[in-house]
């Protein structure tokens, strides 16, 4: 093979650049389906529709676990004492500062609804355990209070709040956020 050097761009130079450009775009476009196929499929997304939960059977002080989008959701019917404990904390002293009002719905403050997944590495914390009356994670020792806020241990954030709305005083829909004006 001989190399021909020429100052003028040749037809081969044009072909080289054009082929390279089309090939690169084609390769990048091929990556889209190859990567996207790993995301949740249509049936998984469809199964993630909102669910309605009847709160009437949940006694005061009880924590129930329901599932939405394969995630455990804790519904905590808090006692007066537990609400007061959650409110009487200096918010600025918390690792992830959030007031109790920011974590409940106005007028329904006896109900705490949180995603029951430890924000450290995804274990399910145990209810009514630990020093703060909320949850204790058995995996790496994170402790949450009665508002589901992280108080101690390696977890970086409070238990996440799912989107949910009160349909009536005793019924919630998880997976749909209520209007902010409620």
């Amino acid at each position: 093979m001989t190399t021909v050097s020429s100052a003028e761009p040749t037809r081969r130079d044009f072909l080289y650049i054009a082929t390279g450009a089309v090939g690169a775009i084609g390769a990048a476009a091929t990556l889209v389906p190859l990567l996207a196929q790993m995301n949740p499929d249509a049936s998984t997304v469809a199964a993630g529709a909102p669910v309605d939960i009847d709160l009437a059977p949940i006694a005061e002080g009880q924590i129930v676990k329901v599932f939405w989008r394969s995630k455990p959701i804790f519904i905590f019917h808090r006692t007066k004492k537990e609400i007061d404990e959650a409110k009487n904390v200096d918010v600025n002293s918390l690792p992830d500062p959030e007031s109790d009002a920011e974590r409940t719905k106005p007028g329904h403050e006896q109900w705490l609804v949180v995603i029951g997944i430890c924000t450290h590495l995804g274990c399910i914390p145990l209810a009514h355990q630990g020093e703060y009356g909320g949850w204790f994670c058995p995996c790496h020792g994170s402790q949450y209070d009665t508002a589901g806020r992280i108080r101690k241990g390696p977890a970086p954030r409070n238990l996440a709040l799912p989107p949910y709305t009160f349909l009536s005083d005793t019924k919630i829909r998880i997976g749909e956020e209520s209007a902010k004006t409620a």
Partner: peptide
Amino acid sequence: WLWGGYAVGNP
């Protein structure tokens, strides 16, 4: 994306 769902599951 790693899970192919909202939690570890069949995918």
